[in-house]
Simulated scan of single mutants.
Amino acid sequence: MSHPSMINRYRWYELIGIYVGILLFLTFVLAPFIEGFLVSLKPLSQLFSSPYRFIPENGSLAAYRTMWTSVPGFGWYIFNSFLISGTITIIVLILVVPAAYAFARFEFRGSGLLLGAFLAVKMFSGAVLLIPLFRLMRSFGVLNTYFAMIVPGVAFIIPTGIWLLHTYMRRIPRELDEAAYVDGASQLYTLRRVILPIAMPGIVVVAISSFIEAYAQQFIYALTFNSKTEYMPLPVGLFAYFGRQEVVWNELMAASFVGIAPALVVIFFLQRYLVSGLTAGAVKQ
């Protein structure tokens, strides 16, 4: 009879299969990033040499130094990207938290249909609505402003945030609301003092996903609704510069990695909240 501690142990060939699968997955996921980073280290003369060298010869960080002078306003583009993404994330959280609480706690006619409509919005590409949005922004006179890029981002991210957070809040016991009601607490007080502290891991998950989506979708809206350099986020700023002349690939890769580095730093410091949000409820208290 086997010992109970042996039940959940993997055999050696099962472990090999697991690690080989993880290695293959990481290879496909990380290979483009590794190649892009190596391109940023290569001299321009090596990028199109034959035979192609995967590992750079005499690699250096020269492209990371020269891109700051080659791309005018590079630091400002990064600031714009963070300003737009951060503002979108804050607005989304302000609107999503009470909406998710309402869908999770209140039963009202058409709630399921409305949630389905939110999900249906995500099925349409943002490009389909570019012309109507452009006409709308022009009629309000907000083209070439941050506002023109923030509003569409908020509108397309809110449905995902509501779905994620309302599912999380539904797992919070209703007895907590009932106990607060018995003590004389209003719905707003219950949300603010009882539900929000418990739902904070889920809110952080929504915040991170909203920030990443806002950071990733800036190109199409900024390219359509803005033509002023001072409002350009990083993707459009790089496109505007490198699209006007011969592409300097090593500097482009260097600029891309520097541009995404701040977002990676933010995610790195918030990852413990992300993990706690994904695993909340797994252990019975």
Rank of each mutant, 00 (worst) to 15 (best):
residue 189 Y to S: 15
residue 65 R to F: 14
residue 42 K to S: 14
residue 134 F to R: 09
residue 159 P to N: 09
residue 28 F to Y: 04
residue 40 S to Y: 03
residue 36 G to P: 06
residue 69 T to D: 02
residue 239 F to D: 05
residue 180 A to G: 12
residue 171 R to E: 15
residue 241 Y to E: 08
residue 165 L to C: 11
residue 270 L to D: 02
residue 249 W to P: 01
residue 272 R to T: 11
residue 50 S to V: 14
residue 54 F to Q: 11
residue 121 V to E: 05
residue 183 D to H: 13
residue 24 L to D: 02
residue 263 A to P: 03
residue 92 V to D: 03
residue 198 I to G: 07
residue 244 R to P: 01
residue 90 I to S: 02
residue 69 T to G: 02
residue 230 E to D: 06
residue 190 T to Y: 11
residue 216 A to D: 07
residue 217 Q to K: 05
residue 248 V to A: 13
residue 50 S to G: 04
residue 80 N to D: 04
residue 109 R to Y: 13
residue 67 M to G: 05
residue 50 S to I: 10
residue 213 E to S: 11
residue 172 I to M: 05
residue 215 Y to G: 07
residue 70 S to W: 03
residue 184 G to R: 09
residue 137 M to D: 13
residue 194 V to Y: 07
residue 270 L to V: 10
residue 142 V to H: 01
residue 9 R to A: 10
residue 250 N to L: 12
residue 197 P to F: 14
residue 203 I to Q: 06
residue 161 G to N: 10
residue 26 L to S: 01
residue 16 I to H: 06
residue 275 V to R: 08
residue 193 R to M: 15
residue 254 A to M: 10
residue 266 V to N: 06
residue 162 I to E: 08
residue 65 R to A: 13
residue 111 S to W: 00
residue 43 P to C: 12
residue 216 A to Y: 00
residue 198 I to H: 11
residue 83 L to Q: 04
residue 71 V to Y: 00
residue 256 S to M: 07
residue 28 F to I: 11
residue 32 P to M: 00
residue 244 R to I: 04
residue 62 A to Y: 09
residue 222 A to D: 02
residue 214 A to W: 01
residue 170 R to Q: 15
residue 242 F to L: 05
residue 126 G to C: 00
residue 262 P to E: 12
residue 64 Y to D: 10
residue 30 L to A: 06
residue 206 V to H: 13
residue 150 I to L: 03
residue 210 S to E: 04
residue 251 E to H: 12
residue 66 T to A: 04
residue 47 L to A: 05
residue 215 Y to F: 15
residue 203 I to M: 14
residue 154 V to F: 08
residue 245 Q to K: 06
residue 6 M to T: 08
residue 159 P to A: 15
residue 100 A to R: 04
residue 118 F to W: 06
residue 246 E to G: 07
residue 55 I to P: 00
residue 200 M to R: 13
residue 142 V to S: 11
residue 89 T to L: 09
residue 38 L to V: 12
residue 115 L to T: 01
residue 12 W to E: 09
residue 110 G to A: 03
residue 180 A to E: 13
residue 6 M to I: 05
residue 214 A to Y: 00
residue 26 L to T: 01
residue 53 R to H: 15
residue 211 F to W: 08
residue 124 F to H: 02
residue 274 L to V: 07
residue 176 L to Q: 03
residue 241 Y to V: 02
